[in-house]
């Protein structure tokens, strides 16, 4: 191997490796944090709307407050953030890049947790499995709730901005009336998917620090491990809160709140996102 050639090959290999690592954090990881924060408002939304009366003048219940806050968030994202499509495409490309490369990288290793059942080794294996499953989950998630592939949704519900909570809940629970067996499966898949992805991010953040050389000493790696674990626990809380929020709300009850909100928005003259569904981002699913 000539020196020059090897140098070029090395640089290319290195660049791809580091881009893979980088895309996992920015934009994907950053987006994930924002996404989970928004979605978990289904649970903490009433706190966000504290002091504000609902459309009927009464204080929000916890559930209605969650629905309303989440709805408002989705409304805001889709109407206020500029160049949303560009952001969205960047995100998709990043995810595709991270997934394809990650899948390839993962196949170069051979897990051996049975012989070496160390905690770090388990995380190594889990990082790869969470990647594989995560890719499927993200694809299903985006295809069903964003691209409108309703044939993959048990209830056949198409997600809509105007009815962001009720359509979401119906898609997860299996029907607009509430739980079905198929809905249970979808929800379970969501639980596994989001759990693994949060782990994937937190653990990836830990390994990235070694890869980039931020944490060199064992002590530093350990300390950073605690930081990543704390972040992971926090994000896991948000993720599970989001899912709980979407599963605990009855689609029909949510629909009532959404109608009220739509009405009040119409009165105030603010344009609703209706009609721009296909061009708007999937944020707030």
């Amino acid at each position: 191997m000539s020196n020059e050639k090897s140098s070029a090959v090395a640089a290319q290999h290195f660049l791809l490796r580091r881009l893979h690592s980088l895309t996992g954090i920015v934009p994907i990881g950053v987006f994930l944090i924002a996404h989970l924060t928004t979605n978990s408002s289904l649970l903490w939304g009433k706190i966000g709307l504290r002091g504000e009366p609902g459309p009927d003048g009464q204080p929000y219940t916890f559930q209605d407050g969650g629905v309303a806050y989440f709805w408002k968030e989705v409304f805001w994202i889709n109407s206020q953030i500029p160049h949303l499509l560009l952001i969205e495409i960047t995100l998709w490309v990043s995810i595709a890049f991270h997934s394809i490369l990650g899948w390839y990288y993962a196949t170069t290793g051979k897990s051996n947790v049975k012989r070496y059942p160390h905690q770090d080794n388990w995380r190594y294996s889990l990082q790869r499995w969470s990647g594989y499953i995560g890719i499927f989950f993200i694809f299903y998630h985006v295809a069903t709730l964003r691209w409108g592939w309703t044939w993959l949704v048990p209830s056949g519900t198409k997600w809509s901005h105007d009815y962001s909570v009720s359509t979401l809940a119906a898609a997860l629970q299996g029907s607009t009336e509430g739980w079905t067996a198929a809905g249970l499966l979808v929800s379970l898949f969501y639980f596994v998917g989001i759990t693994l992805l949060v782990f994937h991010f937190a653990n990836g953040l830990w390994t990235a620090a070694i890869t980039w050389g931020l944490t060199v000493s064992e002590a530093a790696q350990k300390r950073w491990g605690f930081v990543c674990a704390a972040l992971g626990v926090g994000m896991m809380g948000l993720a599970w809160a989001s899912l709980y929020g979407a599963l605990a709300v009855n689609p029909q009850d949510a629909r009532v709140v959404e109608e009220q909100l739509l009405e009040s928005k119409g009165k105030s003259g603010v344009p609703t996102p209706t009609g721009r569904e296909t061009a708007a981002p999937a944020d707030g699913d």
Partner: peptide, 18 residues
């Protein structure tokens, strides 16, 4: 470092720490 940047280099480590 060139060698470690290249294919099979340090970035191929999966941090299993075995």
């Amino acid at each position: 470092l060139d060698e470690l940047m290249g294919p099979g280099g340090v970035s191929d480590c999966g941090n299993a720490q075995n």
